[in-house]
């Protein structure tokens, strides 16, 4: 069960990133494409899934790793990367909650390529890409456990 939760976190995050990136490309080339609405909703649902799964992991299991990381050779893996990541996530989540509203808009009504909406999908993509800093946190934990075993 723990492994499933651990794997679901990056998997759902990747799905959200992929959908946001795809939506950005579709918005640029064909703002009236029917798939946009599905992509927006899939991004939102994946982000909500990430919030629950990652939150469960963070609250119940991360405490031990955190203590180890702070004692290890890369304490900044937690103090900068993890702290920044966990707070930037709320911004990605809020933007993700806003995306389905765009699906109701006539995205070609005023401008053929609505730069604002393309940028919004791009920012969600970038924020989710930044969430990949979890790899640095994992490396920080790994190095800390190796140092502890020596």
């Amino acid at each position: 069960m723990h492994t499933l939760i651990l794997l679901l976190h990056p998997l759902l995050g990747f799905i959200a990133l992929l959908c946001a990136f795809w939506a950005m490309i579709v918005l640029w080339f064909d703002p009236r494409a029917a798939i946009l609405s599905k992509l927006f909703w899939l991004t939102t649902l994946s982000l909500l899934g990430v919030w629950i799964v990652a939150g469960y992991w963070y609250v119940h299991f991360y405490g031990v790793d955190k203590t180890m990381i702070l004692k290890g050779p890369w304490p900044w893996a937690h103090s900068f990367f993890m702290e920044t990541k966990e707070h930037l996530f709320f911004i990605a989540l809020l933007l993700g909650l806003y995306l389905p509203l765009l699906a109701r808009e006539d995205l070609q009504a005023k401008a053929p390529r609505n730069i604002a909406f393309v940028t919004l999908a791009g920012i969600v993509t970038l924020l989710l890409y930044a969430e990949g800093a979890g790899a640095i946190v994992a490396q920080g934990a790994k190095l800390a456990y190796i140092a502890h075993c020596k």
Binding site: H87, F90, I91, L94, L95, L97, Y98, L101, L102, R104, E105
Partner: peptide, 18 residues
Amino acid sequence: QKNTIRYGWALSLAMLVN
């Protein structure tokens, strides 16, 4: 649309509250 405007303001405020 009305909702996009309302939620847009709410979104901006919520990010600052964060």
